[in-house]
Design a protein around this nucleic acid. Structure first.
Lengths: 337, 337
DNA sequence: CTGAAAGCGCTTACAG
DNA sequence: CTGAAAGCGCTTACAG
């Protein structure tokens, strides 16, 4: 593998000049620069990132950390996050950054592992769940001067920059929509205590019911993690308790789709007998049958914003937390013809 | 940020000893080792990867390269690849490797960029399409001694190690299944010339028809890239030409799902009038309605195999290309009650 | 069992 | 405009 010294030798210049020429330093004579570039190309020479990173103390690499919670579940990742990652990866490459991707349990050392070891200049935190448990890690990150942005709730008391959807408004809109369809007994499936985002969606749900003069029935709230299975089981639990309800708001599309399957399997008609709505607008939502009413989050814009906020942070520019608008997408699962 | 020298100073030993102790060198006195470890922990010291990589000339990083083809499409990545990536990431972390993820167009320099610059010890190539165009890149990779594995076809004349599904058998099984349902006019939607995997699926389709004594009708083959839109448009094209067919085999689930939508929109009953089948078994396949008959590829096993083959390659161990079994998953879209 | 020293391949003041 | 030299923070023969 060629080094800058090999290039220098062939070009008849010093290694310093090669380094300068390849970095486009205008101090280097244009002709020399071109000659050096040509030789480098012929030799398939590429700057050794480890050497240059070591020297400059930066990596031009961002780390994307997925948190799997609460169980290190064997099943697939929420497609919503996958879609986000797609955009994050694109923007990274657009901005000349490499992207390190890693799945994390909330084990000991991830907060020190990336920036301490100079693997990355900054972190993007995605899908972390229980914010109480993570709080101390976030504090440690902030304390150590690590640059990071997280996707999620914009709760006031969390350290660092956050980009997130307007979960509360989203939850409110979707519940208002269900109520507008004449539904009075709206079940909520999800775990507000587990994740601040779900908490916000739940608050929106509460607010909408309150505004409609409908009393909250605590029995209609069932815990669930973000998976079809979990949504499925939650509906069965409601049904088996003999509770009646005419609508289900799943805290995520995966939950809602699982819930819908359970309803249909038990012979209930969606949306006639039970209307269903979710949150996220993953690709599947538009393709299930009946197609799923949901709250769309703009993963494209979110991905871009996350990357750009982090880079700004790294470059020492001012950055603000941002709340993205969410919008209601009405489909078949909530509207009777 | 603490360095090994800081730790050494506090521990009253030399920097070499710190380095040895932290790497678990048994030469170092056990008590000293423990003491050093303790101090390192207190200081939140992490080995600088750039420095150690530079010294050892390896990175313990793998790069995952997605190829978007043929258009640098704005839309989402095939969920099949996303699922694969999930498993790849998990196995990487299990094996102590970091994972660099990058979307590539088949632009100039990706083949030199990763290993030449010591960003990664090896490459995983995913979703590359036109193998003719990539052939020269693969040759260059092989020539430069770059370690790489690719997901895809096991065509004999491609350089390097490949892991792939038995596309031909898969294509054959699904077509045989359609024929067994009494279908005689089976359309194929996909572009064999564009991708070797699709080519193999197409060959399986041909073989199954031949075995059933059904003449191949070239008019029933329509090009499509892997997207719902493309599958949708292909069916419309067939319909608008006035061609008749009683089954559609989409070269991917995305294509098949798009095809199904187009059929339904045009008032055709699936599966009664037209049976539909796909390939991949993405999560959506089981959730659309009617649920989609398809050929399942084991992304979990595939992801593991890709990572382990690449690591073996890096460690200089013998590695073989592997063809994974694919299996038919019969669902509602192909079977009349 | 431990330390002093070389060297991985760069970047960048400093000197000319 | 160019070169000689220091130094980024490690790992690992080599010597003791």
């Amino acid at each position: 593998m060629a080094t800058s010294l090999d290039v220098a030798q062939l070009a008849g210049v010093s290694q310093s000049t090669v380094s300068r020429a390849l970095r486009g330093d205008p101090m280097v004579n244009e002709k020399t620069r071109e000659r050096i570039r040509e030789i480098a190309r012929k030799l398939d020479y590429t700057v050794d990132k480890n050497a240059s990173n070591l020297r400059t103390q930066q990596t031009r690499t961002l780390a994307l950390l997925f948190f799997e919670d609460p169980t290190p579940d064997e099943s697939n990742i929420n497609p919503f996050f996958m879609s986000m990652q797609g955009w994050i990866a694109r923007v990274c490459s657009e901005r000349g950054y490499d992207l390190l991707v890693s799945f994390q349990q909330m084990s000991r050392n991830w907060h020190a592992e990336y920036t301490g070891s100079h693997k990355a200049d900054g972190l993007i935190l995605l899908g972390y769940g229980d914010f109480l448990a993570y709080r101390s890690k976030l504090d440690a990150l902030a304390q150590s001067g690590t640059r990071f942005v997280r996707w999620g709730s914009l709760l006031l008391d969390q350290p660092g920059i956050a980009i997130g959807s307007d979960n509360q408004l989203g939850g409110r809109m979707v519940t208002e929509h269900l109520v507008a369809q004449g539904r009075r007994r709206v079940a909520f499936i999800g775990s507000p205590e587990h994740s601040p985002e779900v908490m916000e969606r739940y608050r929106g749900y509460q607010a909408a019911l309150r505004a409609a003069g409908i009393d909250l029935d605590p029995a209609l709230r069932v815990d669930a993690v973000t998976s079809q299975q979990s949504g499925h089981d939650a509906v069965l639990a409601l049904l088996d308790k003999g509770l009646t309800f005419d609508a289900v708001f799943g805290a995520s599309d995966l939950i809602a789709i699982g819930a819908m399957r359970a309803l249909i399997r038990r012979g209930l008609k969606v949306p006639e007998q039970v209307a269903v709505a979710g949150f996220d607008d993953i690709a599947m939502a538009g393709n299930v049958s009946p197609s799923l009413t949901t709250v769309a989050q703009d993963t494209r814009r979110a991905g871009r914003l996350l990357v750009e906020a982090l880079i700004a942070l790294i470059e020492g520019k001012p950055v603000q937390s941002t709340c993205l608008p969410a919008h209601l997408v009405v489909r078949e699962s909530s509207v009777t013809a």
